[in-house]
Design a binder for these strands. Structure first.
Length: 464
RNA sequence: GCUCCCUUCGUCUAGCGGUUAGGACGCGGCCCUCUCAAGGCUGAAACACGAGUUCGAUUCUCGUAGGGAGCGCCA
């Protein structure tokens, strides 16, 4: 049997972190087993579904490289199929029409809660023979009322549900559209999904879906319910925890592989290994090694992983990403060094491409802000001599390489009887406006002779 | 309220009856050093609680507590 998994987001908003992790695990499982990965858009909620959300989901999946082999399927395009199977269930007696009003149902639930019971539909329309005139009906599934339904979950093990706890859920709305449970079951059945990998918020829904699957004659897929991803404070992940939309991480300069690497370790592990390439993830991923407990989305580790990828990546391949970050910061890459060179110089001291753009701006334009305290401390009258000498030497040096620059600086420092650092830091402040940058020789090489001499000279004229 | 799920350092986790409870991020210290990083060494830091099973429980069982999810004509 060929493994077939699916990711089925509803387009009611952007793709969030938790959804991505679910998509990743489904994708990994399919890839690991040489199977198929299906993308399905669950857009039966016409009120809340938007094309913009669909686009955002597709864009995020593309960015992350979580490519699907089939789909995307759209539930709104399969309405005839749902109606067909609903009719089939109705004819077989597995479903029945319910004419209860929303008010009536609400009162019923309130009464049940007051009695300390599990609020659920009491089946009052189960035996109804005739339609109620003038009242639109919904279709309810006739859930078995006795017995136990067992879910052999791949991550949680055996979970039992007493059918008596379950109620007759609505499968077709009064407007003739299918509800979530019905759409899921029909689509999973029709597309031959073998493994349903989803968030554990669906664990309680599973026995109901299994019953519908049975009634429709579809084989039951295997289930794996993934633990939730919570916010850093242990509460449900939401906007107030900061960025939960994956695309925001792309925009901040995180790398897709780093994102995947971070997410795969939330709930899954392979011994002590922390870093996994895509290929390794696929090769090593094992649903049996997935954790049952919820984890927190804490970006500290993400930052570290992102830097690992930044440091290990090919600068040329990473360059376009930095260029877009520079654009975002209003900087023109043509007015400074090649992006790949900047990445090489900065990647040991940055966590994201966004960080690099933020700290390397002086290479493309005048320093955005000058650290006055640093100026006061390092650009003193005493440094005038060494700085003048250095300016002269750099102006006359035959080439413009870090080695040549370093030699010139070392010579000037020695001739002036000061340590390298006593010269390096003033130069750094003069050309970058701050106290932090890559090694000063590398910094100057990147900056270029013209800008370096210009900024050095200007700093000298401003010395006290 | 009812049903279901979960519980190892602050965080992510290893562990699958006997370990000085391991690793990683973060944090502290030292080293290296032109700044910041990176790197090396090093330190602090956890089995929620209570019973039971067992020669022996972090590990198995049951409670308790805490957390989460579900209980819609939302998905």
């Amino acid at each position: 049997m060929t493994v077939k998994t699916r990711f089925a987001p509803s387009p009611t908003g952007f793709l969030h972190i938790g959804g991505v992790r679910t998509a990743l695990f489904s994708w990994l499982y399919a890839r690991h087993h040489g199977g198929q990965f299906v993308l399905r858009i669950e857009d039966t909620d016409r009120e809340r579904s938007t094309q913009a959300a669909v686009d955002a989901i597709l864009e995020a999946m593309e960015w992350l490289g979580l490519h699907h082999d089939e789909g995307p399927y759209y539930q709104t395009r399969r309405m005839d199929r749902y109606r067909e199977l609903a009719e089939q269930l109705l004819a077989a007696g597995s479903a029945y029409r319910c004419y209860c009003s929303r008010d009536e149902l609400e009162q019923m639930r309130a009464a049940q809660m007051a009695r300390g019971e599990n609020p659920r539909y009491d089946g009052r329309c189960r035996g109804r023979q005739n339609p109620v005139a003038g009242v639109s009906s919904v279709l309810r599934f006739r859930t078995p009322q006795e017995g136990v339904t067992v879910v052999d979950d791949l991550v949680r093990g055996r979970v039992e549900f007493r059918n008596a706890e379950l109620d007759d859920l609505v499968i077709m709305r009064s407007d003739g559209t299918p509800t979530f449970h019905f759409g899921v079951v029909v689509d999973d059945g029709d597309t031959g999904i073998t493994h349903v990998i989803r968030g554990d918020d669906h664990l309680n829904n599973t026995p109901r879906q299994m019953h519908i699957l049975d009634a429709l004659g579809f084989a039951r897929p295997a289930y794996a319910h993934l633990p939730m991803i919570l916010g850093p404070d242990g509460a449900k992940l939401s906007k107030r925890h900061g960025a939960v939309n994956v695309l925001e991480y792309r925009d901040a300069g995180y790398l897709p592989d780093a994102m995947l690497n971070y997410l795969v370790r939330l709930g899954w592990s392979h011994g002590d290994q922390e870093l996994f390439s895509r290929e390794e993830m696929i090769r090593l991923f094992d649903i049996a090694a997935v954790n049952a407990s919820a984890s927190r989305f804490d970006t500290g580790k993400l930052d570290w992983i992102n830097q690992q990828y930044l440091r290990a990546g090919d600068p040329e391949a990473l360059a376009p990403g930095l260029v877009s970050q520079l654009d975002r910061a209003g900087l023109d890459v043509r007015r400074g060094p090649h992006a790949a060179a900047v990445i090489e110089a900065y990647r040991e001291r940055a966590t994201t491409l966004g960080d690099i753009a933020a700290s390397a701006g002086y290479l493309y334009a005048e320093p955005a802000r000058v650290d006055e305290a640093a100026v006061g401390k390092h650009l003193t009258a005493a440094i005038a001599g060494p700085l003048r000498l250095l300016t002269t030497r750099l102006a006359g040096s035959p080439d413009w390489t870090r080695e040549g620059i370093h030699a010139a600086m070392a010579a000037v420092a020695q001739e002036c009887g000061i340590g390298f650092g006593k010269l390096g830091q003033p130069v750094r402040v003069a050309v970058t406006g701050g106290t932090v940058s890559p090694p000063i020789d590398v910094t100057l090489e990147l900056l270029g002779r013209e800008k370096t001499l210009e900024r050095l000279s200007r700093a000298i004229t401003r010395l006290p």
